[in-house]
Write a protein that binds this DNA or RNA. Sequence first.
DNA 1: TTCCAAATCGTACACTGTACGAAGAATGTT
DNA 2: AACATTCTTCGTACAGTGTACGATTTGGAA
Lengths: 217, 217
Amino acid sequence: MPPLTRERVLKTAVRLADREGINAVTMRRLARKLGAGAMSLYYHVPDKDALLDGMVDLVFAEIELPPTDLDWKAALRRRAISSREALLRHPWAVGRMEATKAPGPSDLRLHDAVLGCLLRAGFSVEMAIQAYSVQDAYIYGFALQERTLPPGGREDFARVAKKRVREVESKLEDVARMYPNLATVVGGYVAMHGYDAAEAFEVGLDVILDGLERLRT
Amino acid sequence: MPPLTRERVLKTAVRLADREGINAVTMRRLARKLGAGAMSLYYHVPDKDALLDGMVDLVFAEIELPPTDLDWKAALRRRAISSREALLRHPWAVGRMEATKAPGPSDLRLHDAVLGCLLRAGFSVEMAIQAYSVQDAYIYGFALQERTLPPGGREDFARVAKKRVREVESKLEDVARMYPNLATVVGGYVAMHGYDAAEAFEVGLDVILDGLERLRT
DNA sequence: TTCCAAATCGTACACTGTACGAAGAATGTT
DNA sequence: AACATTCTTCGTACAGTGTACGATTTGGAA
């Protein structure tokens, strides 16, 4: 068994959260995975909150920085897509990414790189802040929504939607009367054509990036 | 003491979460506030998860539906701003709003109204879904960010930023070397001019709504 | 009164984070 | 070699969590 280090503790915690959900990450269970006693963890991490912050920073570290050899829109597009993918791999991190008072080094690195990309592209400081805020809100909000959605492509999604409709079949008229638009959209459209989250993310992303262009001085 | 009902349980839980944070909402503490025994709650609510879902639906109920007598953009603008305000009053709800498998009645009502607004405005079903997804992602993502920010207007914000800068004063050169853009933006701009979250929200919102216009048929 | 359902709640159990302090392992200093 | 210091591990204990189970109380109908 390799030696206990902060890094191994954090990585093991991330793996555990990925596989069994964030609620499975308790000090005792994590320690057991590491072949250690529960209290040994406290030598490497001050408390559980810091453990979670450390895990989140590992997720930040997986996000690709905006490449400096592309124009700003293409570069930020890449980092946005990379962010979504990281959050998809680690859905438990979504609610905490922007919510920590003590951002880790990877978090700061990414923030700095994105701001740099915007400033180099000619955004004023004020507009760069604005542009950053919009993008990040979209990315994390989308990940929040996606966390509830069934994984997979269009077909998987259509199948799930059909099942959902069948579940409320008995009171279908009531539902259609109370929520006519929802019935149209879910029952009529999604059950037929499905929904591709990756595609939807990119469409929305382009709406935003194109809109941001007009904020440039 | 009024009788124990599901409604009173939920409302009291919301008040408790608003005042002392979501972690203060434990079955025992909530029961004490209600003048009841802990186990009495379980007659009105199946378990704690359902309690939280019920609380979230109360927050949804506070959100203004898009008015039907306005054009689609103005109507959706109103509901977006109303959503932000509700989430600002109940920050603990942010992470759970779009994350529940069993949406409550107010949740469904709002979804239905927004979709109706978009369909009436001439969006195709596919584009309505897309437009909905972008808006909600932005709204919840922004609320997620704002949860960490200090409350108040531009001046309060500038004050906090200045304090933050003073805290790292000793290693200021290191920080500026590692994160030059962050140093420029936070130390240079925000500490001077502050940041107005309400304003930033509306600017971003307009970027999105204007961008969505082009998705219409 | 008698009866039943609705509503309340006390006790107990498994599990949580972590304070405290003892113990062991590793590394230098004479 | 022996000792001193620091680094690292961890057992025990405690207050607090959600809730299963079953007993009890309440309130109205017969």
